[in-house]
């Protein structure tokens, strides 16, 4: 809102600075909380569960960013999660290159593939887009499923970790206490970066394009490239999550790429509220802990997820994050003594 800033002079700038320090403060707090978590949580099982939850939160964030900045629904996001995992897992396990290079390749390949794909599919909206991403994802799934020489096809493959990666003992990635901190910190940093991006000129441009692609062209922008960049960013986040999961589990399987995993991530994002940056992560967190609540009846967890989704779309169109924002702003107003 730089018009406001230029017209209001210093006030606008100061407000913007305040907003930024607010974001950095929140991120710092979250990081500290994450580092403290292993000391606060006694149960190893809980830490392990939380680690898994954070990976889900990352995947949900990646698909949420596609909704938020591109206005597109994807039913193939798990393909980039899996592509990252497979690229890293296969290269590392077969010692084709050093584990560091494998990790890098696991990040770069999905990002580049998604960017190039984005150049082609950016213009396709709605149902056709959902179907297209579904088809691309399933095609990759079929490759992982059928190609036994790659990683044992549908049996999946366990990935024996090298002793160190980037000089870090690989036990660090396999112990819940340390992996939780790593995953959580990365998630926080990603959300921080995404929120800075959303406020940047580029972020504003992508939202403008999301709202009205045609008019964006009439105010002088090509719309394909910005959209494709968002596809790349989103795949980068998904791939990070996939690599983290591979590091932690030491196992890759085609299920990582399956469309039902993509659909699940999409549901997490919608339940949390994709219009708010941290909404998808919140949705993933909540749904993950439904799993724990479901307890012994884990096979009914999907039903709980489905039921929650139906209830949220009917009664909370802005998702859990929207609800929280509404409640806190009401509370703040009450504290300030204003009438609601």
């Amino acid at each position: 809102m730089s018009i406001g800033e230029s017209q209001l002079g210093g006030v606008g700038v100061r407000m913007a600075q305040q907003r930024y320090s607010w974001i950095f403060g929140l991120a710092a707090l979250a990081l500290v909380l994450g580092i403290a978590a292993p000391h606060l949580i006694a149960s190893l099982l809980w830490m392990s569960l939380l680690t898994q939850a954070v990976v889900d939160m990352m995947l949900a964030t990646s698909v949420g960013i596609l909704v938020r900045q591109n206005g597109r629904i994807s039913f193939g996001q798990a393909a980039f999660f899996g592509l990252g995992a497979y690229t890293f897992g296969v290269i590392a396990a077969r010692e084709i290159a050093s584990p560091e290079l494998a990790l890098l390749a696991g990040l770069v390949l999905p990002t580049v593939v998604a960017f190039l794909l984005g150049l082609v599919i950016a213009r396709i909206p709605g149902v056709a887009h959902a179907m297209l991403t579904l088809a691309v994802g399933q095609a990759l799934y079929e490759v992982a499923f059928k190609w036994r020489a790659l990683a044992n096809g549908d049996d999946g493959m366990s990935v024996r970790m090298p002793d160190t990666i980037f000089g870090i003992d690989s036990d660090v990635f396999q112990s819940p206490a340390t992996m939780l901190v790593i995953c959580w910190s990365l998630l926080v940093l990603m959300l921080l970066a995404l929120s800075l991006m959303a406020r940047s000129p580029f972020g504003q441009l992508t939202e403008v394009i999301r709202e009205n692609d045609e008019r964006a062209r009439f105010i002088g922008y090509g719309t394909t490239l910005p959209r494709a960049i968002i596809y790349g960013v989103s795949a980068f986040i998904a791939a990070t999550a996939g690599i983290l999961q591979t590091l932690y589990d030491g196992y890759i399987s085609p299920q990582m790429l399956h469309w039902s995993a993509s659909g699940m991530a999409m549901i997490m994002a919608i339940v949390g509220g994709p219009r708010i940056l941290w909404g998808p992560a919140l949705g993933a967190f909540v749904l993950f802990f439904f799993k724990d609540i479901a307890g012994d009846a884990t096979e009914y967890w999907p039903a709980l997820v489905g039921g929650t989704l139906i209830a949220v779309t009917l009664f909370l169109p802005e998702g859990f994050a929207g609800l929280i924002i509404r409640l806190t702003s009401r509370a703040v107003r009450r504290i300030k003594g204003e009438r609601p």
């Binding site: 629904i73 709605g126 149902v127 999409m266 169109p317």
Partner: peptide
């Protein structure tokens, strides 16, 4: 019908939710 005023893509996701519920029902 209650969802007809919503974004169609959200309704699509809801049908995905129904899929999950039906699968659990059949398992039960």
């Amino acid at each position: 019908r209650p969802l007809r005023k919503h974004d169609h893509m959200v309704t699509v996701l809801v049908t995905f939710g129904i899929l999950l519920v039906l699968e659990a029902f059949a398992t039960a």
